[in-house]
Design a protein around this nucleic acid. Sequence first.
DNA 1: TTGTAGGCGTTATCAA
DNA 2: TTGATAACGCCTACAA
Lengths: 324, 324
Amino acid sequence: MATIRDVAQLAKVSTATVSRVINSNGYVNEGTIKRVKEAIEQLNYFPNDVARSLFKGRSKMIALFVPDITNPFFPELARAIEDVTNRHDYTFVLCNTDSDIHKTTNYLNALQQKSADGFIIVSGSLTEDHLKNIQAPIVALDRIISTDISSVTVNNRIGSRQAVNYLRSLGCRRIAHIAGPEHVDNAIYRMRGYLDEVKHEDWFDSSYVVSGAYHFETAREAAVHLLTNNPRIDGIFAGNDLMGTAVLNAAASLDIKVPEDLAVIGFDGISMGERVTPALTTMAQPIYDMGAEAAEILIKQIRTPSQKVMREAFKVKLIERQST
Amino acid sequence: MATIRDVAQLAKVSTATVSRVINSNGYVNEGTIKRVKEAIEQLNYFPNDVARSLFKGRSKMIALFVPDITNPFFPELARAIEDVTNRHDYTFVLCNTDSDIHKTTNYLNALQQKSADGFIIVSGSLTEDHLKNIQAPIVALDRIISTDISSVTVNNRIGSRQAVNYLRSLGCRRIAHIAGPEHVDNAIYRMRGYLDEVKHEDWFDSSYVVSGAYHFETAREAAVHLLTNNPRIDGIFAGNDLMGTAVLNAAASLDIKVPEDLAVIGFDGISMGERVTPALTTMAQPIYDMGAEAAEILIKQIRTPSQKVMREAFKVKLIERQST
DNA sequence: TTGTAGGCGTTATCAA
DNA sequence: TTGATAACGCCTACAA
């Protein structure tokens, strides 16, 4: 690998001049520029990013942390962030944390040691305390970390109320909820939205809420359990689409007809929802816009460290499909 | 951020000694070790990885390139690689290339400038020529790049023949194929395997093969087209599971009963296949093992640059589910 | 308009 | 057993 010195030597100038040409900053004679560029070409020279990072303390790298890369919601989110960060000349990297706080802090430290410029984090368990020696700006996405950290989320509670009301408007009388993990804020809000609507119903008791942990298998088992023990359930609001498809799967295996005998609605709006049969009705988040917005905010904070904390909450939107 | 100098000062030793302690390298007096460790603790010091990388020319970072992060096959593959690389103390990063050669080489260069230690690449369009100034070791996964580059793949052609024979053993008489992208080697082999079995059948003509580009939407449209124009088709072999689920979707929308009127088999063994209804029969690849093996090979090559090229081909295995 | 030189934080060599 | 010092490759005052 050629270095800046090789280029300088070949072009018969100093390394400073080469640097000026590379970064187009400072005055350089036209002819000199040409000579340097030729030398660069000839040696197939690329500036060493590590040396640059060391000098600048920045690396032009942005990382996204997601809790479960196999949940299609996160790859879709990642696509948006990738587009925006690449457009701004950042290298984008994706890290899967498995919701494991240890793995998360490990990645965080490793990347901070690599001078990562900023982080977009989806995490329900990370607290401000874990971030106390992280210098780089952070944007919380999908789940809030703390009031001091910028965030991009949706109106989970209101969206959930809409979901339940929609099921009710279709004639559902007994509506159950498959909830996400107990410690994840958006799961809590979605459950609260559900409870807002049903807790005063005479049929309601706590057995209508079960946890599906935002995972397919867990949700599937929960749904089977729910539908077996409460055969009068005629509507299910799943806390995310992955669990919504799990409900469809459970219903099929129990020979319960959807939407005739059971209406199902999810939350997220992942494309998988329109690919299953019957297609899943959902409260769709503007996934791409959320990711893009998180990236824009992060880049703003990287460029202007004095930026104040921003909190953006998008609205979810009902998409009716075959499951209702 | 504290530096090694701060630690040295506080522990009243030289930076060389601190370095020795950090890397447990060379002789250091017990008491000195203790003092240094205390100073490190007290200052909450972490060695700067960028400086390390600059000096060593290595970064303890491994990257995986995938063509489409929204195809669940790749996240599943990524999980395996992540586990292995993390276990060996590498930082693992995931890059999505969209099968775009320009994006791919961009990432490749960017990461090489960051002294990435090695690459695992899933790509059907990258050639040796694009890699001519990449120094770090590379392992091709799922798709072969060249004979000079280690690879981990499966026996696509034989697996495909098995798939077709299995459909035939169920009584299918006219079997169609939804193929992957034309320039991707594994798609070509899968198609060849299919052709090996059917090209001499009297019913066969080229209209039984359509391209689905390994994408859901494309495959869905192709399947609708196929089933509409050739109503006598009673079996479809899809080149991957994503397209297999697209066939199920197409069949449902055309009111064709699976498996009664149409048997469908995919290729990959992603978990999505068991989550749809009817569950998708498939030729399953050992996804986790393949990813893990690719990572092991890569790490071997990083450690021993003289390692010779390795080519591993796993076997696929029939998994019968409801779609047949 | 160009060059010299010091420093970013580490590690490894050589001396002491 | 420890310390001084020269790299790693780049950038930017400051001088010329």
